[in-house]
């Protein structure tokens, strides 16, 4: 892989706290046990006693209707949101027990692709991709493309090439279409060199054609870079084609957790049936 070779010297700039994080056994990257979450002021739990383990190289689709708890679950796994109870272990580390520095180090190994892309709109595409290295480099030079060292710039351009956006380096991110923005967000994730990638409905804000392109590209890159993938989606077809395991949520509970080949997709439509109002 070209980017691996080119960035090898830069890995030495990884944050000191990243080195202090315990390396997990290769088999399990994410282990969730008895996870529950209740928002302040809400009468019921959004997540109820969720448990599962995800191994290296797995591609997991998280299915469920709006409000079933998919996004909350992904956020709790990254501790972008505090769980109410339960245990989340990322690469063998209990994320709820980590201090700020250690948590940042752990997050630098875990990519997130958001439904709304979450690029910094007023900055260039190249700067947005270089931001993917912020977890690896604490040097302020990586804040903006104009001040970034040449190897960072070169690597960012290579990441943009991988997603077919190398011609847009100088473009402001808020001038891109939805599909282009999501490609840049994926390039930012590649720049991060994560072992595990969470994607929260990565194609949901795109039209069907663009969503299909993005998912195909995303899946190919994830496989090519040997990453583990957990993505949430409403699209059963995406789950069937891009995941080798399906976890389905209903009202905050896991109702299905099995290999994609063993899932009867015609029955999954029931996940999206609403109770009569």
């Amino acid at each position: 892989m070209a980017s691996e070779t080119a960035t090898a010297p830069l890995r030495g700039n990884a944050a000191p706290e990243a080195a202090s994080i315990r390396q997990a056994p290769a088999s399990t990257e994410l282990a969730v046990t008895g996870l529950s979450k209740r928002y302040d002021g809400e009468p019921q739990n959004v997540l109820r006693d969720i448990s599962f383990r995800i191994g290296t190289g797995e591609r997991v689709a998280l299915l469920g209707a709006n409000g079933s708890g998919k996004s909350t679950l992904l956020r709790c796994c990254m501790r972008l949101m505090e769980p109410s109870s339960g245990d989340v272990r990322l690469f063998g580390n209990d994320v709820r027990q980590l201090g700020r520095s250690a948590l940042r180090g752990l997050r630098s190994r875990t990519g997130v692709v958001f439904q709304r892309h979450n690029l910094v709109g007023r900055l260039s595409v190249l700067t947005n991709v270089i931001h993917g290295a912020l977890g690896r480099s604490r040097h302020p030079g990586t804040w903006f493309q104009a001040t970034a060292a040449q190897p960072w710039r070169d690597e960012a351009v290579r990441c943009l090439q991988e997603v077919g956006m190398a011609d847009y380096t100088g473009q402001r991110a808020d001038r891109l279409s939805g599909g282009q923005s999501q490609r840049v967000a994926i390039a930012r994730t590649l720049m991060q060199h994560p072992q595990l990638v969470f994607a929260d409905e990565p194609a949901a804000s795109l039209d069907p054609a663009a969503g299909e392109e993005v998912m195909a590209l995303f899946s190919r890159l994830i496989a090519g870079h040997g990453m583990t993938l957990v993505f949430s989606s409403h699209d059963l077809d995406h789950a069937r084609r891009y995941a080798d395991r399906v976890i389905a949520l209903r009202a905050g509970e896991v109702v299905i957790d099995r290999p994609t080949a063993a899932v009867d997709f015609s029955q999954l439509a029931g996940l999206y049936q609403r109770e009569a109002v």
């Binding site: 940042r104 630098s108 997130v112 709304r116 892309h117 931001h131 967000a185 991060q192």
Partner: peptide
């Protein structure tokens, strides 16, 4: 809050998040 959250999620520190997002 989207872009700052994205940068926090990839391990950026608070100063970098304020400066870049």
């Amino acid at each position: 809050d989207g872009p700052p959250e994205a940068l926090r999620s990839l391990g950026a520190g608070p100063t970098a998040t304020v400066a870049t997002a």
